[in-house]
Design a protein around this nucleic acid. Structure first.
Lengths: 234, 234
DNA sequence: TGGTCATATTATGTATAACATAATAGTGAT
DNA sequence: ATCACTATTATGTTATACATAATATGACCA
């Protein structure tokens, strides 16, 4: 099962339009020429001659690559290959109003799994400064005003800091991407009402574990901290 | 911090091209008309009149929405709103040959976090049949031929089954999406050579925990099982 | 009446040509 | 040598015409 074989499987049928084929031809061309990030790709007119199709088709194919974040085009300079920020791409189709409810629920679960599972990366990369910053955030937390908008903002800033500590840019982008979804999910009655609103492990408790505990302990603490969210699912 | 406010933040500058603006106008239009999945959107010519731009621009904007999986277009019928399979969208820009190494490493970490963190969903939804299937897979595993292609395939089929048990379609799609990446990462020397090749917790051990243990135990067992992968990162 | 086939219609897909615009290169004057 | 102006280049936008596929229409026949 090689990479290429897997990719081929994704396009089994023959119902490709001309633009479809041209798109893959261009990607293939770029790969063959071993073009790296920053290199300029052939001009639109050159591509029309190379591939024998109209500029319209070339432009539509290039437009796709642009949307995918594979290239960027500038006037006169032409198009250059870019390093696609895949989550930025994703964010454009992540419109909560359009995604179906099942997917929204799935994404919510995905987030919970990530926050529980990223313990090792946090422990591997956390610094004393990070600990202090987390303590700072905790100290400014509002007390017991559960429904408050202010409370949610603090909730977000604490967890965002954890993602930042993981030092995984894709993970950070992913979280940023999910934020508007949760906002939507919370307001849309898609999930059950929380059974009770007390948090078993507080943010302060999590910081303690980060300071003195282990990844194992942190996973369990985080799982516990998120208990309310899990209860809303099961 | 509402959804809309967050979305607006993503487009701060004024460097939008005409197609950019038309794209958002169309999405806005669809939202205002409260169009749901399956509804047909205005024809290209109608949009040209509504928005006062050429059909080409309309088509390029619609092309973007197509790439994002928001609409599908059929001849004569026009374009209809679809429920975007966001990970299918993502897969198109997930070309391992184009993604930079940092992103590849990030995705690898993301996978590890997910597999450790999804314990609760597996436990919540696993059935006796699933257990039997896992046992079946384990029984067919090759012995100690670590480098073997055959071994990797069994590794994949075991872990794929776990994703399936999670009953989270987005999660499953995500894994499917990541498979070619790992293939690439493994072959590209991007990660360190594994320090030693023994697995601390075997697949059989994981199944035992699934049968008799708890989410907590499973998280630790899975973390242990993946030890080699973590060692390659740290 | 009811069904089947050819034809018209409709909306997307593709091709071509022309002009607009922005960025760069090049030229010339001081 | 520097600055300003112009020419050039490649993408951005518009307009038009034709191709193609899917559907609707309607005539025709049994």
């Amino acid at each position: 099962m090689t990479i290429t074989s897997i990719h081929q499987e994704e396009q089994p049928t023959e119902n490709h339009s001309l633009v479809d084929r041209v798109e893959t031809q261009i990607v293939e061309l770029l790969r063959q020429q071993k073009l790296k990030v920053g290199d300029v790709i052939p001009k639109e007119m050159e591509l029309t001659e190379m591939l024998g199709v109209s500029r319209t088709v070339i432009r539509e194919a290039l437009m796709r690559l642009k949307v995918m974040g594979l290239i960027e085009s500038k006037k006169r300079k032409g198009s250059v290959i870019t390093s696609p920020d895949i989550f930025n791409v994703l964010s454009k189709s992540m419109n909560p109003h359009i995604l179906d409810q099942e997917t929204l629920k799935d994404m919510f679960e995905l987030r919970l799994a990530l926050e529980v599972g990223m313990a090792d990366f946090i422990f591997q990369r956390i610094t004393p400064d990070d600990i202090n910053e987390l303590k700072e955030i905790v100290s400014k937390e509002p007390e017991a005003s559960e429904e408050d908008r202010f409370f949610i903002e603090h909730e977000i800033s604490f967890h965002s800091k954890l993602y930042e500590i993981s030092n995984n840019q894709s993970l950070k982008n992913f979280q940023k991407l999910l934020l508007p979804l949760f906002d939507y999910v919370h307001n849309s009655g898609l999930l059950k009402i929380p059974v009770n609103s007390l948090r078993y492990v507080s943010h302060k408790g999590l910081v303690d574990v980060l300071e003195n505990g282990s990844p194992e302990l942190f996973r369990n603490a985080m799982r516990n901290h998120l208990e309310n969210h899990f209860l809303r699912l099961f």
